[in-house]
């Protein structure tokens, strides 16, 4: 089984790193199955993190542990500076895990009032947060009459009630229709833009790529990599090329040390760089060799490609 874990921190640089969640050597065993193995990482304030992995990879288990619903087998974790109990720390955390869980017989407003009571927040926030997720006019409808998309949006409103230090989202778009997915992503982006720390778990790579920038990659609960998404593998990117003189171009590329792997698909040549080189530099070089390019694109690997390369190396 492949356990994949990404943690991504954002571009916003902090002067002082203020930890929000610190995990040390965390292990969780379900009988013989080790879902999380000796896992350590830190989440710092102001960053946007993502957790990425296929279904059943243990990312929900890790979130469950830090959210006080799953018992750890070994290791430890603490919220903030480590001086508050987990349940008190959770009052400053907003979290949605898997499906939205509310009392079906209560209206949106009644449900949120209950959350306010638990978190010790004033009721005045309710209208404001319902507005953020566009549910204000449905506040007096019972939760059970909501569509899945609305339920998920209510869950986000609920998680935001306390203006949390960190927002934890586990598979927030799972099971939603395209419109619902779009709405949720828009809301998440708005929240991220306000400087709220976000921890996003998803099995959808493009979802993580669209919102987050730093990663910690884990496999079977073990950390493979931590850092920025674009530095995940040592890559200088690659060129996609087309030219009339197809064979000449190919032999030139093969002779050049700057290029590693070269892939050919019909007319299109993909050349991976071993050393940094800009597109204009390359164009100039080709021109001096008498090759006129009809197509030149410089690209970096997508998160998915990087991710596959990283895990391929270990297989």
């Amino acid at each position: 089984m492949l356990n994949l874990f990404f943690s991504i921190s954002a571009t916003k640089t902090n002067h002082i790193l203020e930890p929000i969640l610190t995990i040390n050597n965390l292990t969780k065993k379900f009988g013989y199955l080790t879902a999380v193995k000796d896992l350590s990482f830190t989440i710092n304030k102001g960053n946007v993190y993502g957790i990425l992995g296929p279904n059943g990879s243990g990312k929900s288990t890790t979130l469950g542990i830090v959210l006080n619903v799953v018992n750890k087998t070994a290791g430890d974790f603490h919220w903030f500076d480590g001086n508050t109990s987990t349940h008190n720390a959770l009052k400053q955390v907003g979290a949605i895990i898997e499906r939205p869980n509310f009392y079906p017989y209560m209206t949106a407003e009644q449900n949120l009032k209950l959350v306010c009571r638990i978190k010790g927040v004033d009721h005045s926030k309710i209208a404001e947060k319902l507005e953020v997720v566009g549910l204000l006019e449905r506040k007096d409808h019972k939760f059970k009459t909501y569509s899945l998309g609305m339920k998920q949006r209510l869950a986000i409103a609920s998680a935001l009630l306390n203006d949390p230090e960190i927002l934890i989202l586990d598979e927030p778009t799972n099971g939603l229709d395209p419109q619902g997915i779009h709405q949720i992503r828009k809301i998440i982006k708005e929240i991220a833009a306000n400087g709220t720390t976000i921890l996003l778990a998803s099995h959808l790579l493009d979802e993580v790529e669209k919102v987050c920038t730093h990663v910690v990659v884990l496999r079977k609960g073990e950390k493979l990599y931590s850092g920025r998404v674009d530095e995940m593998i040592n890559s200088h990117g690659f060129f996609e090329l087309k030219a009339e003189q197809h064979q000449d171009l190919l032999s030139l590329l093969e002779a050049d040390n700057s290029f590693g792997k070269i892939k050919v698909e019909d007319e299109l040549i993909t050349a991976f760089l071993n050393a940094p080189m800009s597109a204009s530099e390359f164009n100039k070089l080709m021109f001096s060799k008498g090759i006129l390019l009809s197509h030149l694109v410089k690209r970096k690997e997508s998160l998915e490609e990087q991710f596959l390369q990283l895990t391929d190396k270990l297989n």
Binding site: L67, N68, V69, S85, T86, H87, N88, A89, L90, K91, V93, A95, I97, R99, N101, F102, Y103, P104, V115, I118, K119, G120, S158
Partner: peptide
Amino acid sequence: SNKTLKQNLIDGLSKKE
């Protein structure tokens, strides 16, 4: 059955509470 126990704990209620 509503899984609200889980949500209560996540919202910051302790198991003891």
